[in-house]
């Protein structure tokens, strides 16, 4: 029943073609806020993967078994924010109790991304149709989409952090120093990622 081609397609699409930061332009705030240091970018990236995976699986269940049967899918956004926020709080408490090491590693980034638009974005995308199969996302597909979108976010964040660490040392005109040059860098990265659109999985595998 599991469509392997679809899963591979979702993975590559979420990481490269429809990268959350560089193609969909979601979650830009943490992208610029936490990309100053490679180590904190890694921590943030791990936290995003974690939260996206949990959020996409729970919101899929809520959407499929509560919202759609009652015909109130138009309340998705509000309910998803509620669910994601509560879920992250719960996960944070559980982690602190049962896995202090992981809690330490994720640190401040876990509560920070509670209402990150990228997390909400992946939950909302999962309620639509899978462009590869033309069917609604299955549970496995939406979970994978969450994880892979998180990995895509982490990839963009780590690339950016690496570039910004190099930028710190370079001779930049004073007016462009700091955030301005980061914005320009991010724009160039987005242009580069546009190249992945040529992979065009949707037409070749889908259908």
């Amino acid at each position: 029943m599991i469509n392997i081609a679809s899963l591979i397609g979702i993975s590559i699409s979420a990481i490269f073609i429809n990268n959350f930061v560089l193609s969909r332009f979601l979650g830009l705030c943490p992208f610029f806020g936490v990309s100053k240091k490679l180590s904190s970018a890694t921590g943030m990236g791990m936290a995003v993967i974690f939260v996206m995976a949990i959020a996409s699986s729970f919101t899929w269940v809520i959407n499929s078994y509560i919202l759609e049967p009652f015909g109130i899918s138009y309340l998705q956004t509000i309910v998803f924010i509620l669910v994601i926020a509560a879920l992250v709080q719960l996960v944070e408490m559980a982690l602190q109790k049962y896995s202090p090491t992981l809690y330490e590693a994720l640190g401040i980034y876990l509560p920070l991304i509670t209402t990150n638009c990228a997390v909400l974005g992946v939950a909302l995308i999962n309620t639509g149709l899978n462009p590869l199969t033309g069917q609604p996302f299955t549970f496995i597909e939406s979970l994978l989409n969450g994880v892979m979108s998180g990995i895509g976010f982490m990839l963009a964040l780590i690339l950016m952090a690496g570039l910004r660490e190099k930028l710190e040392l370079s001779n930049i005109p004073k007016t462009l120093d700091g955030l301005p040059i980061s914005f320009i860098t991010a724009g160039l990265m987005a242009l580069a990622f546009l190249g992945f659109a040529g992979l065009n999985f949707f037409s070749s595998i889908g259908g």
């Binding site: 009652f70 109130i72 408490m93 109790k97």
Partner: peptide, 22 residues
């Protein structure tokens, strides 16, 4: 529905904060 989802989550978090208190 939204109210009960909220209520459920709220009660759940309340219990969790007591049970998982560090």
């Amino acid at each position: 529905i939204v109210g009960s989802v909220g209520l459920f989550l709220g009660i759940g978090l309340g219990i969790a904060s007591k049970k998982l208190h560090v």
